[in-house]
Write a protein that binds this DNA or RNA. Sequence first.
DNA 1: AAGCTTATAGAACGTTCGTTCGATTGCTCG
DNA 2: CGAGCAATCGAACGAACGTTCTATAAGCTT
Lengths: 191, 191
Amino acid sequence: MPTDQDYLSQLQDYYADHRALPSLASLGQLVGLRSKSSAAALANRLKLAGYLTTTPDRRLAPTEAFFARPVVDTVRAGLPQPANDAGFDGLAIDSYLVARPSRTVLLVVKGDSMVEAGLMEGDHIIVDRAQPAAMGDIVVAIVDNEFTVKYLAKDKRGIFLKPGNPAYPPIRPQGELEIYGVVTGSFRKYR
Amino acid sequence: MPTDQDYLSQLQDYYADHRALPSLASLGQLVGLRSKSSAAALANRLKLAGYLTTTPDRRLAPTEAFFARPVVDTVRAGLPQPANDAGFDGLAIDSYLVARPSRTVLLVVKGDSMVEAGLMEGDHIIVDRAQPAAMGDIVVAIVDNEFTVKYLAKDKRGIFLKPGNPAYPPIRPQGELEIYGVVTGSFRKYR
DNA sequence: AAGCTTATAGAACGTTCGTTCGATTGCTCG
DNA sequence: CGAGCAATCGAACGAACGTTCTATAAGCTT
């Protein structure tokens, strides 16, 4: 007899295929329940368990937990890795990194002026164009018609751009400092 | 007058909020179209453009392109830069980072032993458990029952783990070196 | 200005949705 | 065996769905 976990796995597979959840009728058909009310009961159980929600128009929608994958701890646990991996859904990364897609832009890092912040040449940074910048944030500013990624800093002489690398000097804007956006994340691919 | 790109942005934000797409009626209300047929026409245009599909039960579903974020060039182009403009390269973060979902696991970096590789404490790394490790790769190995992230290296004395930080010594395995997986990417969130 | 094209509105349609409720099934335990 | 219970079924319901069609409004062309 299948458990709710099994059903959840099937739903996750369905989501991986279609990037959407089925209707209750289709859900029933998918997991082998013949009546819609049974499917509704299942959906309610999964809602209770925190895997599903409903959208404003009462459709099923996954929650964060629906995508959650075991983030393995650094210290190995006694047991071997839980094998219930129904498959990692990359979307978790997407929604983790990007809060407002329409205001988000990607940029590729040039140079090593932010190595202290862990930003290396070729890294992709996630830039939120709408978020207001605060002191200490990593920002994308426009200097001499070029994008530059630096810390936003302030001292008695005013606001300036501080590189995350002692080999580079701070940049003090002539007039107004034009900030393109705030860096909210970064990612990188090896190989 | 809003373009289809504007509408797409609104849909992307809706998806970021609910992890599902709205019905045609809700879509119309969302973007300010008063009739369902207009919303249907919009949906068809976005389908034609490759951003949307339909599930087996005729619901709207996003495609791969739907998740792509624009990548802007480091050098600012002459024109002011709209956040969402066709013609820029798009990149879907998740599928870029995760090639084989079912064999991929996330890990959180502890310590600073790989700073040279741009891996800082708290970063998430993407680990492919199935990929064979080659020399020079960043690997997750199991040493003293703990996960450790290091370069895989080899010299005349044999295979060893090389930290990306001169403050740490190389690790030479007693017997067999147990490799958990290969690091294929990493990501990090600021703030 | 008139005529044409395109986009949107609005209404009608049969279908499918999610919900509800009583009937039925299958299992447990005395 | 048979009563009790929980899960599932199956049918019914109004609401909402996506589709289709025609009418209206807005833009262009000439």
